[in-house]
Design a protein around this nucleic acid. Structure first.
Lengths: 149, 149
DNA sequence: GGTAATAGTGGGTAATAGTGGGTAATTGTG
DNA sequence: CACAATTACCCACTATTACCCACTATTACC
């Protein structure tokens, strides 16, 4: 599994392009073929998966039954935000305007590595998200990681 | 499996033609032979399947028992809306007026990729559909995909 | 510490995707 | 059989995208 980590301040140019940090590029598998899937993330951000990771998600999706109403709703709302993007010769991808609008991104972004995916946030939105949490870092760690690591 | 995704704002011209977005065309298999089947979708939209995907649906339909009344009803209502459409030299297909009327489409449309099919919506109808859902994106994801993605 | 390599950023130009419409062929109708 | 109406086929325009080149600041290396 590609494990992305770290936090980077980058910028988006007038054509909607964003560089993928070299520290993240170097642990992308060759089978991802320089291709990513950009989609709406949970909370107000953009999520970017290398192709090989995305295919795991597609496998899960293919088990849904499109003759069921709730499955259809999820297929639609989940897939409508997604799009394939290939690295250009400068190691950038283009993010669709719909996603930039959703995430409230203007020109500066915060890129963070979150395990199997990369997230792109508007800097202010990210601060706001962190500050909106009532519980601190240590408290959440204890809840989520439970009995220890 | 051809996995269509993404959301596009397109228009229908005075002859009822609609372009198939290039991002969707490029993951259509050659055995689909530039042919699609357009039919009535679930909810207020038009569903478009590449020929090879449609054949899977036909297989499912053929497993129905036409000696049962309910099966007959479904066969009829499902198939009566369907028609083959081939791409023209500009990568467009013509949508029958019956379908456009059903979906309430005037001239602007929202095209969304939903896995094995492409859906065409009237923009307002699509917003209405999304807004009519009581649960948000994150909540539905958790329900349908279980423990998270 | 100085120099070379490279990561991140910006922008110009050619290709092409999306859109619109004209004319010929086809269909079906009176 | 002639006509109207629809459909198929072709050509043309425009906005977007893909591809390429260029610059600067940081990082790696000797």
């Amino acid at each position: 599994m590609a494990t992305f980590m770290g936090m980077f301040d980058y910028s988006i140019d007038s054509k909607g392009r964003i560089s993928i940090p070299q520290k993240m590029r170097k642990n992308i598998k060759p089978e991802a073929k320089e291709t990513f899937v950009a989609t709406r993330g949970f909370e107000k951000c953009i999520a970017i998966y290398p192709l090989d990771e995305w295919e795991n998600i597609e496998k899960k999706l293919s088990s849904l039954n499109s003759f069921k109403e709730k499955d259809r709703l999820f297929q639609r709302t989940f897939l409508m935000w997604a799009s394939h993007q290939e690295l250009d010769s400068q190691s950038r991808i283009t993010l669709p305007k719909t996603l930039l609008d959703y995430a409230g991104i203007k020109s500066e972004v915060k890129i963070i590595g979150v395990g199997e995916r990369i997230e792109v946030w508007d800097p202010e939105a990210f601060d706001k998200y962190l500050n909106s949490q009532s519980e601190g870092y240590e408290a959440i760690a204890e809840q989520v990681m439970g009995l220890g690591i």
